[in-house]
Protein backbone atom coordinates (compact mmCIF):
# COMPACT_ATOMS: atom_id res chain seq x y z
CA UNK A 1 0.00 0.00 0.00
CA UNK A 2 2.83 2.38 0.98
CA UNK A 3 4.54 1.66 -2.33
CA UNK A 4 1.32 2.35 -4.20
CA UNK A 5 0.82 5.71 -2.48
CA UNK A 6 4.46 6.68 -3.01
CA UNK A 7 4.35 5.80 -6.71
CA UNK A 8 1.09 7.58 -7.25
CA UNK A 9 2.39 10.68 -5.46
CA UNK A 10 5.35 10.66 -7.82
CA UNK A 11 2.94 10.26 -10.71
CA UNK A 12 0.93 13.17 -9.36
CA UNK A 13 3.99 15.44 -9.31
CA UNK A 14 4.82 14.48 -12.91
CA UNK A 15 1.22 15.03 -14.03
CA UNK A 16 1.03 18.43 -12.31
CA UNK A 17 4.30 19.57 -13.88
CA UNK A 18 3.47 18.11 -17.29
CA UNK A 19 -0.07 19.48 -17.45
CA UNK A 20 1.03 22.92 -16.23
CA UNK A 21 3.91 23.12 -18.68
CA UNK A 22 1.85 21.89 -21.61
CA UNK A 23 -0.91 24.38 -20.81
CA UNK A 24 1.64 27.18 -20.57
CA UNK A 25 3.23 26.31 -23.91
CA UNK A 26 -0.08 25.78 -25.72
CA UNK A 27 -1.61 29.01 -24.45
CA UNK A 28 1.47 31.01 -25.45
CA UNK A 29 1.44 29.34 -28.87
CA UNK A 30 -2.12 30.44 -29.64
CA UNK A 31 -2.42 33.21 -32.23
CA UNK A 32 -3.54 36.70 -31.17
CA UNK A 33 -2.33 39.19 -28.62
CA UNK A 34 -2.94 38.05 -25.05
CA UNK A 35 -3.28 41.61 -23.77
CA UNK A 36 -6.20 42.33 -26.11
CA UNK A 37 -7.90 39.04 -25.26
CA UNK A 38 -7.61 39.64 -21.53
CA UNK A 39 -8.76 43.26 -21.88
CA UNK A 40 -11.84 42.15 -23.87
CA UNK A 41 -12.81 39.70 -21.13
CA UNK A 42 -12.07 42.16 -18.34
CA UNK A 43 -13.79 45.26 -19.64
CA UNK A 44 -16.34 43.84 -22.08
CA UNK A 45 -16.63 44.10 -25.83
CA UNK A 46 -17.86 47.73 -25.73
CA UNK A 47 -14.91 48.87 -23.67
CA UNK A 48 -11.89 47.11 -25.14
CA UNK A 49 -9.40 49.24 -27.03
CA UNK A 50 -5.66 49.55 -27.46
CA UNK A 51 -5.38 51.65 -24.26
CA UNK A 52 -7.05 48.88 -22.26
CA UNK A 53 -4.69 46.35 -23.83
CA UNK A 54 -1.67 48.54 -23.00
CA UNK A 55 -2.86 48.86 -19.39
CA UNK A 56 -3.27 45.08 -19.11
CA UNK A 57 0.12 44.45 -20.73
CA UNK A 58 1.81 46.77 -18.30
CA UNK A 59 -0.04 45.57 -15.21
CA UNK A 60 0.48 41.87 -15.90
CA UNK A 61 4.00 42.23 -17.30
CA UNK A 62 3.00 40.39 -20.45
CA UNK A 63 6.15 41.58 -22.18
CA UNK A 64 8.27 39.31 -20.01
CA UNK A 65 10.18 36.69 -22.02
CA UNK A 66 8.27 33.37 -22.00
CA UNK A 67 11.03 31.52 -20.16
CA UNK A 68 10.98 34.08 -17.34
CA UNK A 69 7.19 33.93 -17.09
CA UNK A 70 7.47 30.12 -16.98
CA UNK A 71 10.11 30.33 -14.27
CA UNK A 72 7.86 32.58 -12.16
CA UNK A 73 4.99 30.16 -12.59
CA UNK A 74 7.14 27.18 -11.65
CA UNK A 75 8.48 28.91 -8.55
CA UNK A 76 4.94 29.84 -7.49
CA UNK A 77 3.79 26.28 -8.08
CA UNK A 78 6.57 24.94 -5.86
CA UNK A 79 5.16 27.15 -3.11
CA UNK A 80 1.64 25.89 -3.97
CA UNK A 81 0.54 29.31 -5.20
CA UNK A 82 -1.80 29.18 -8.18
CA UNK A 83 -1.85 32.95 -8.61
CA UNK A 84 -4.73 35.26 -9.49
CA UNK A 85 -7.08 35.31 -12.44
CA UNK A 86 -5.88 37.77 -15.09
CA UNK A 87 -9.49 38.75 -15.77
CA UNK A 88 -11.22 39.02 -12.41
CA UNK A 89 -8.14 39.41 -10.19
CA UNK A 90 -9.59 36.83 -7.79
CA UNK A 91 -7.34 34.03 -6.43
CA UNK A 92 -7.34 31.09 -8.82
CA UNK A 93 -7.81 28.64 -5.97
CA UNK A 94 -11.18 30.27 -5.14
CA UNK A 95 -12.37 30.05 -8.75
CA UNK A 96 -11.24 26.44 -9.11
CA UNK A 97 -12.86 25.46 -5.81
CA UNK A 98 -16.13 27.09 -6.83
CA UNK A 99 -16.16 25.60 -10.33
CA UNK A 100 -14.76 22.15 -9.54
CA UNK A 101 -17.04 21.81 -6.51
CA UNK A 102 -20.10 22.34 -8.68
CA UNK A 103 -18.76 20.13 -11.49
CA UNK A 104 -17.96 17.31 -9.06
CA UNK A 105 -21.41 17.55 -7.59
CA UNK A 106 -23.00 17.40 -11.02
CA UNK A 107 -20.69 14.62 -12.22
CA UNK A 108 -21.18 12.45 -9.10
CA UNK A 109 -24.97 12.94 -9.21
CA UNK A 110 -24.93 12.18 -12.95
CA UNK A 111 -22.76 9.12 -12.44
CA UNK A 112 -24.99 7.72 -9.67
CA UNK A 113 -28.11 8.29 -11.74
CA UNK A 114 -26.48 6.78 -14.81
CA UNK A 115 -25.50 3.70 -12.79
CA UNK A 116 -29.13 3.40 -11.69
CA UNK A 117 -30.21 3.47 -15.33
CA UNK A 118 -27.34 1.60 -17.00
CA UNK A 119 -26.80 -1.34 -14.62
CA UNK A 120 -30.38 -2.74 -14.67
CA UNK A 121 -30.71 -2.09 -18.40
CA UNK A 122 -27.35 -3.70 -19.22
CA UNK A 123 -28.07 -6.74 -17.06
CA UNK A 124 -31.55 -7.08 -18.48
CA UNK A 125 -30.18 -6.90 -22.03
CA UNK A 126 -27.58 -9.57 -21.34
CA UNK A 127 -30.04 -11.79 -19.46
CA UNK A 128 -32.95 -11.67 -21.94
CA UNK A 129 -30.86 -11.61 -25.11
CA UNK A 130 -32.49 -10.88 -28.46
CA UNK A 131 -34.76 -9.26 -29.57
CA UNK A 132 -34.82 -7.06 -26.41
CA UNK A 133 -31.03 -6.79 -26.45
CA UNK A 134 -31.00 -5.42 -30.00
CA UNK A 135 -33.81 -2.98 -29.24
CA UNK A 136 -32.07 -1.64 -26.12
CA UNK A 137 -28.71 -1.42 -27.87
CA UNK A 138 -30.32 0.40 -30.80
CA UNK A 139 -32.01 2.79 -28.39
CA UNK A 140 -28.78 3.48 -26.54
CA UNK A 141 -27.00 4.15 -29.86
CA UNK A 142 -29.74 6.60 -30.75
CA UNK A 143 -29.45 8.46 -27.43
CA UNK A 144 -25.67 8.49 -27.71
CA UNK A 145 -25.86 9.90 -31.23
CA UNK A 146 -28.06 12.74 -30.00
CA UNK A 147 -26.09 15.85 -28.94
CA UNK A 148 -26.29 16.25 -25.19
CA UNK A 149 -27.63 19.76 -25.76
CA UNK A 150 -30.69 18.42 -27.61
CA UNK A 151 -31.28 15.90 -24.84
CA UNK A 152 -31.16 18.71 -22.28
CA UNK A 153 -33.63 20.83 -24.23
CA UNK A 154 -36.02 17.85 -24.54
CA UNK A 155 -35.89 17.26 -20.79
CA UNK A 156 -36.44 20.96 -20.17
CA UNK A 157 -39.48 20.98 -22.44
CA UNK A 158 -41.03 18.04 -20.62
CA UNK A 159 -40.05 18.54 -16.98
CA UNK A 160 -39.62 22.31 -16.73
CA UNK A 161 -42.11 23.67 -19.23
CA UNK A 162 -44.85 21.08 -19.58
CA UNK A 163 -44.99 19.78 -16.01
CA UNK A 164 -43.17 22.65 -14.30
CA UNK A 165 -41.54 20.24 -11.85
CA UNK A 166 -38.00 21.58 -11.96
CA UNK A 167 -36.39 24.97 -12.64
CA UNK A 168 -35.03 25.67 -16.12
CA UNK A 169 -31.64 27.02 -15.05
CA UNK A 170 -29.60 28.09 -12.08
CA UNK A 171 -28.09 26.48 -9.01
CA UNK A 172 -28.36 26.67 -5.24
CA UNK A 173 -30.95 24.00 -4.40
CA UNK A 174 -31.28 20.25 -4.96
CA UNK A 175 -34.12 20.92 -7.43
CA UNK A 176 -31.70 22.81 -9.67
CA UNK A 177 -29.46 19.74 -9.80
CA UNK A 178 -32.06 17.29 -11.10
CA UNK A 179 -32.34 18.18 -14.80
CA UNK A 180 -28.63 18.75 -15.54
CA UNK A 181 -27.76 15.55 -13.66
CA UNK A 182 -30.45 13.60 -15.48
CA UNK A 183 -29.28 14.91 -18.87
CA UNK A 184 -25.75 13.88 -18.05
CA UNK A 185 -26.89 10.53 -16.67
CA UNK A 186 -28.98 9.56 -19.71
CA UNK A 187 -26.20 10.53 -22.08
CA UNK A 188 -23.63 8.60 -20.04
CA UNK A 189 -25.92 5.60 -19.42
CA UNK A 190 -26.16 5.15 -23.18
CA UNK A 191 -22.50 4.07 -23.16
CA UNK A 192 -22.16 2.47 -19.76
CA UNK A 193 -25.13 0.13 -20.27
CA UNK A 194 -23.17 -1.38 -23.17
CA UNK A 195 -20.17 -1.98 -20.88
CA UNK A 196 -22.44 -3.61 -18.28
CA UNK A 197 -24.18 -5.65 -20.96
CA UNK A 198 -20.92 -6.87 -22.54
CA UNK A 199 -19.40 -7.71 -19.18
CA UNK A 200 -22.57 -9.50 -18.01
CA UNK A 201 -22.87 -11.41 -21.28
CA UNK A 202 -19.29 -12.59 -20.96
CA UNK A 203 -19.84 -13.70 -17.35
CA UNK A 204 -23.23 -15.35 -18.06
CA UNK A 205 -21.65 -17.32 -20.89
CA UNK A 206 -18.54 -18.40 -18.97
CA UNK A 207 -17.93 -21.97 -17.89
CA UNK A 208 -17.56 -21.11 -14.19
CA UNK A 209 -20.99 -19.46 -14.22
CA UNK A 210 -22.61 -22.48 -15.94
CA UNK A 211 -20.81 -24.83 -13.56
CA UNK A 212 -22.16 -23.00 -10.49
CA UNK A 213 -25.70 -23.53 -11.78
CA UNK A 214 -24.98 -27.14 -12.68
CA UNK A 215 -23.77 -27.83 -9.15
CA UNK A 216 -27.19 -26.76 -7.87
CA UNK A 217 -27.11 -23.03 -7.05
CA UNK A 218 -30.22 -21.04 -7.88
CA UNK A 219 -30.05 -18.36 -10.59
CA UNK A 220 -30.12 -15.54 -8.01
CA UNK A 221 -27.53 -17.25 -5.79
CA UNK A 222 -25.27 -17.82 -8.80
CA UNK A 223 -25.61 -14.18 -9.79
CA UNK A 224 -24.91 -13.05 -6.23
CA UNK A 225 -21.91 -15.35 -5.70
CA UNK A 226 -20.26 -15.39 -9.13
CA UNK A 227 -21.93 -12.69 -11.20
CA UNK A 228 -21.76 -9.37 -9.36
CA UNK A 229 -18.01 -9.25 -8.70
CA UNK A 230 -16.99 -10.43 -12.13
CA UNK A 231 -19.36 -8.09 -13.91
CA UNK A 232 -18.42 -5.17 -11.65
CA UNK A 233 -14.70 -5.25 -12.42
CA UNK A 234 -14.68 -3.70 -15.93
CA UNK A 235 -17.70 -1.55 -15.06
CA UNK A 236 -15.99 0.07 -12.06
CA UNK A 237 -12.83 0.70 -14.09
CA UNK A 238 -14.90 2.26 -16.86
CA UNK A 239 -17.02 4.44 -14.58
CA UNK A 240 -13.99 5.70 -12.61
CA UNK A 241 -12.14 6.80 -15.70
CA UNK A 242 -15.25 8.29 -17.27
CA UNK A 243 -15.86 10.52 -14.24
CA UNK A 244 -12.99 12.81 -15.20
CA UNK A 245 -14.08 13.04 -18.83
CA UNK A 246 -17.57 13.76 -17.54
CA UNK A 247 -16.30 16.68 -15.48
CA UNK A 248 -14.46 18.23 -18.38
CA UNK A 249 -16.95 17.29 -21.06
CA UNK A 250 -20.12 18.87 -19.70
CA UNK A 251 -19.64 22.35 -21.10
CA UNK A 252 -22.89 22.31 -23.03
CA UNK A 253 -24.91 21.12 -20.04
CA UNK A 254 -23.37 23.77 -17.81
CA UNK A 255 -24.06 26.42 -20.40
CA UNK A 256 -27.67 25.34 -21.01
CA UNK A 257 -28.55 25.10 -17.32
CA UNK A 258 -26.40 28.09 -16.17
CA UNK A 259 -24.42 25.73 -13.95
CA UNK A 260 -21.14 27.28 -12.77
CA UNK A 261 -18.92 24.29 -13.50
CA UNK A 262 -15.34 23.86 -14.57
CA UNK A 263 -16.06 22.92 -18.19
CA UNK A 264 -17.80 26.19 -18.86
CA UNK A 265 -15.31 28.14 -16.75
CA UNK A 266 -12.39 26.55 -18.55
CA UNK A 267 -13.86 27.34 -21.97
CA UNK A 268 -14.28 30.99 -20.96
CA UNK A 269 -10.77 31.10 -19.50
CA UNK A 270 -9.35 29.76 -22.77
CA UNK A 271 -11.19 32.42 -24.82
CA UNK A 272 -9.88 35.05 -22.41
CA UNK A 273 -6.33 33.63 -22.31
CA UNK A 274 -6.65 33.57 -18.53
CA UNK A 275 -3.60 31.33 -18.17
CA UNK A 276 -3.52 31.03 -14.34
CA UNK A 277 -7.16 29.85 -14.30
CA UNK A 278 -6.54 27.44 -17.17
CA UNK A 279 -3.46 26.06 -15.43
CA UNK A 280 -5.22 25.87 -12.07
CA UNK A 281 -8.20 24.03 -13.54
CA UNK A 282 -5.99 21.71 -15.60
CA UNK A 283 -3.83 20.96 -12.56
CA UNK A 284 -6.86 20.18 -10.42
CA UNK A 285 -8.25 17.88 -13.10
CA UNK A 286 -4.90 16.19 -13.63
CA UNK A 287 -4.61 15.58 -9.89
CA UNK A 288 -8.18 14.31 -9.83
CA UNK A 289 -7.36 11.92 -12.64
CA UNK A 290 -4.44 10.40 -10.70
CA UNK A 291 -6.54 10.23 -7.53
CA UNK A 292 -9.45 8.53 -9.27
CA UNK A 293 -7.12 6.10 -11.02
CA UNK A 294 -5.67 5.15 -7.66
CA UNK A 295 -9.12 4.75 -6.14
CA UNK A 296 -10.29 2.64 -9.08
CA UNK A 297 -7.21 0.43 -8.75
CA UNK A 298 -7.83 -0.04 -5.04
CA UNK A 299 -11.54 -0.81 -5.57
CA UNK A 300 -10.68 -3.23 -8.40
CA UNK A 301 -8.16 -4.92 -6.14
CA UNK A 302 -10.82 -5.21 -3.45
CA UNK A 303 -13.27 -6.74 -5.95
CA UNK A 304 -10.70 -9.10 -7.42
CA UNK A 305 -7.59 -9.49 -5.24
CA UNK A 306 -6.11 -12.24 -7.44
CA UNK A 307 -3.73 -10.01 -9.36
CA UNK A 308 -2.14 -8.55 -6.21
CA UNK A 309 -1.96 -4.87 -5.20
CA UNK A 310 -1.41 -2.59 -8.20
CA UNK A 311 1.66 -0.36 -8.18
Amino acid sequence: MKQLIFRRLLQLVCVVWGVGTLTFVLMRALPGDMAYRIAASRYGQDNVDSQAAALVRNELQLDLPPWLAYWHWLMDLLQFKLGHSLVSGEPVIDSVQHMLGHSLLLAVAGLCLSALIAVPLGLFSAWRGNPLDSVLMGLSSMVRAMPVFVLGVLLLLVFALHWNWFPVAGFGTAMHLVLPALTLAISFAAISNRVVRDSAKQVFGSSFYTFSQVKGLSKWRTFQRHGIRNIALPVVAFLGIQLVSMIEGIVMIESLFSWPGIGHGLAHAIFARDIPVIQGAALAMGALFVLLNTLVDIVCHWIDPRGGMPV
Partner: peptide, 26 residues
Protein backbone atom coordinates in the same frame (compact mmCIF):
# COMPACT_ATOMS: atom_id res chain seq x y z
CA UNK B 1 3.42 22.90 5.63
CA UNK B 2 2.41 24.82 2.50
CA UNK B 3 1.55 21.54 0.81
CA UNK B 4 -0.75 20.54 3.66
CA UNK B 5 -2.30 24.00 3.72
CA UNK B 6 -2.89 23.77 -0.03
CA UNK B 7 -4.49 20.33 0.22
CA UNK B 8 -6.57 21.46 3.19
CA UNK B 9 -7.70 24.55 1.30
CA UNK B 10 -8.71 22.53 -1.74
CA UNK B 11 -10.45 19.92 0.40
CA UNK B 12 -12.34 22.48 2.46
CA UNK B 13 -13.17 24.36 -0.70
CA UNK B 14 -14.82 21.37 -2.32
CA UNK B 15 -16.64 20.52 0.89
CA UNK B 16 -17.82 24.11 1.19
CA UNK B 17 -19.04 24.10 -2.40
CA UNK B 18 -21.05 20.95 -1.77
CA UNK B 19 -22.54 22.42 1.38
CA UNK B 20 -23.34 25.66 -0.39
CA UNK B 21 -25.32 23.80 -2.99
CA UNK B 22 -27.17 21.54 -0.63
CA UNK B 23 -27.54 23.79 2.31
CA UNK B 24 -29.84 26.72 2.59
CA UNK B 25 -27.91 29.67 1.28
CA UNK B 26 -27.47 33.10 2.83
Amino acid sequence: RSLFRFIRQMGFGFLASFLVVYGSMS
